[in-house]
Each structure stands twice: as structure tokens, then as C-alpha cells.
Amino acid sequence: MIVTSKLTASASLSTVLLIAGTALAAAAEADHGGGFPPFNPATFGSQLLWLAASFGALYFLMSRVTLPRIGRILEERHDRIARDLEEASQRRAESEAALAAYEKALIEARNKANAIAGEARNRLNVETETNRKSLEATLAAKLEEAEGRIEATKTEALSHVRGIAVDTAQAIVSALVGVTPRMEDVESAVDGALSKTH
């Protein structure tokens, strides 16, 4: 709209100037044999011919040479920008993928470490348990053996007690009484005494 009003203004100004100019031109027409030059038909042929030739050449040069040239420059720039943006987004995707892979690897490593630690703990537990059991079994066996030995010793000692008691009793009786009792009597007496104590 601004353009339109400017146009109107310039058009009306032009009209005023045109009228003034035409008046002056009319006044000066006496100097020109052919009248007002822009309306002199004698020049039309030449002007049209050279306009056709020059504008035709301009159109040819613009459409075949210059405009494709500028268009190519603009297109190349456009392509370059698009390509750079594409590359940037690709790089970004790559870096994001790398980050994701890194995090995944980190989690995997952590899980693996946990698994190894758990396995080691279990293995150690099992080993300890086995060692403990075998040790206990050994100890129990030794204990049992010792107990058996004690029992045997005790039995043996007890079996010696009767003989010693019989000998001692025979000796004591012979020392006190002066008569050596018979072995059978002493034995039965000792047996009787032993059975009482038990």
C-alpha cells in the first residue's frame, strides 16, 4: 500500500512535470525539424531493430549464462548448508550412540564384577565348609580313637586291679597272720570286695 501511494504521488508529480515539459517542448518544437523526438516515427524502425537485437541478446545471456550461474552458486551454498547440518546431526547421533554404548558397557562391567565377586564368595564359602567338615570329621575320629584308647586303658587297668588286689591281699594276710592263704580264697574275697565297691 505504501508503494501504491508512492506510485500515485510520483505519477501525479510526473503528470504535472509532463504537462510542463510538453508545453516547453511545444515551445521548443521550432528548433526540431522532426518534432518531439520520442514521437518521431522516423526513428522507430531503428529503435525497434536495435531494441530487439540488444534485448534478445540480454535475454539469451541471462537465461543461458548468468542466471544458471548465479542459481548454481545459490544452490551450492544451499546444498553445502544442508550437508553440513546433516553431518552435524549425524555426528550428534554417533556421539549419543557412543554414550549409550559406554553406559551399557559400564553397567555390564558392573554386573560382571558383581557376578565374579558373588561366585568367589560362594566358592570360598563352599571350600571353607568342606574344610571345616573334614576337619571336624578328623577331630571326631581322633576323639573317638582317643576315647577308645582311654576305655581300653581303663579296662586294662581295671583288669590289673583285681590281680594287684589279690597279690596285695595275699601279701597283707601272710604278713599279718603269717599264714599264706590259698589263692582261691583270696580271689573270691577280692571279687566279693570288688563287687561291693561297684
Binding site: G21, A25, A28, H32, F36, P37, P38, S46, Q47
Partner: peptide, 9 residues
Amino acid sequence: IDPIHQFEV
């Protein structure tokens, strides 16, 4: 004074 001389072909 000839303001239209400039348009002379």
C-alpha cells in the same frame, strides 16, 4: 533553451 534536445536520436 531546448529541454528536449536530450531525447534526440
